[in-house]
Amino acid sequence: MVLPSPEFIIYSIAYGSSLALLCLGLTLTYMTTKVPNFAHGTLAIVGATVTLMLIDRVYYQFRGDPLYYSLYIAAPLIAFFVVGLVALTEYLLVLRPLVRKGIGIIGLMIAALAFDIILVNILTMTLHLAPSEYFGKLIGQSLKGFDARVSLADITTTFSRLAMPVVAVILTVTLHLFLTRTKFGIAMRASIENPSLARVLGIDVDRVYIVSWFLAGGLAGVAGSFLSFIIESVKPAAGSLVIVSIFAGSILGGLGSIYGALLGGFLVGFMEPMATIMLQNALSEFLGRTVIITQYQRLFSLLVVIVVLLLAPQGLTGLNYREVIGRVRRVVGVG
């Protein structure tokens, strides 16, 4: 087996970190509203778009200047609030009215899909119509060249790839402290576990849901802002690719625990490019010519979904190893 280069491993860690934040958000909204939010991938793309526009309007002129590095604070921060508000809009304008009408899970899923389609179209219109200062046109731009280069020993990587894991760890620790040390954070956990008891105790459960959606959107914005430098091009439909990995990571995490989501998201995000590149290297070696399979990378996430649902539907957090082995036997057909 041919091991990927250190550069590629750094890239995979960065991608895994951003996916961890995305899975965390998806799981948070799933635990509160019980709707799998199909628009979550596009929420990340909104964050990427914010970053693209910020470079176009403000940062283009600072290229090469130390001031340019403030982009890595300004972009995620603005994306956090913008995407937080978009997610809040989805909850308040679309999902909550339907929940109050007693619409079932299927109806809510279709509504989330509809919101996703609307959001993609709004993004498309924005990127087509918004005048661009430097790019000529905004849609479909690659931001890879706008990520500051960093050299460590003989490894050359980019600033966003090094910053993403650090930011993910900081956000995770902050969220953990918020959920365990503040009264409102504890109320969030209480409302997620048992909303009717929380209501009896006088906790405003609806406000907890509102904060959950805003936070989930905000984290998607931060992740998307960093992803804008990693994905091939910033285009509205890119969310439909990311959503597959988000679901895979969340399902692997069990959809019932934010810590499971972080772990599942990181594992899927890290393993997806790693496994693909290692398989590609092995195949090339075996066949004696270069084979390119990276365009099939999402297959890995789909496989994770199938395998987890078949063998351990509760995900990592609900794992009972003896049961899993039993299921493996049954699925494979031995014993």
């Binding site: 009264k183 504890i186 109320a187 956990r189 209480a190 576990e193 048992n194 105790l201 906790i203």
Partner: peptide, 17 residues
């Protein structure tokens, strides 16, 4: 009671208001 919360956190929730 909230099974996933500690005893202390349960009491904090009971005194939420």
């Amino acid at each position: 009671v909230f099974a996933e919360l500690s005893v202390r956190e349960n009491l904090v929730m009971a005194s939420y208001t």
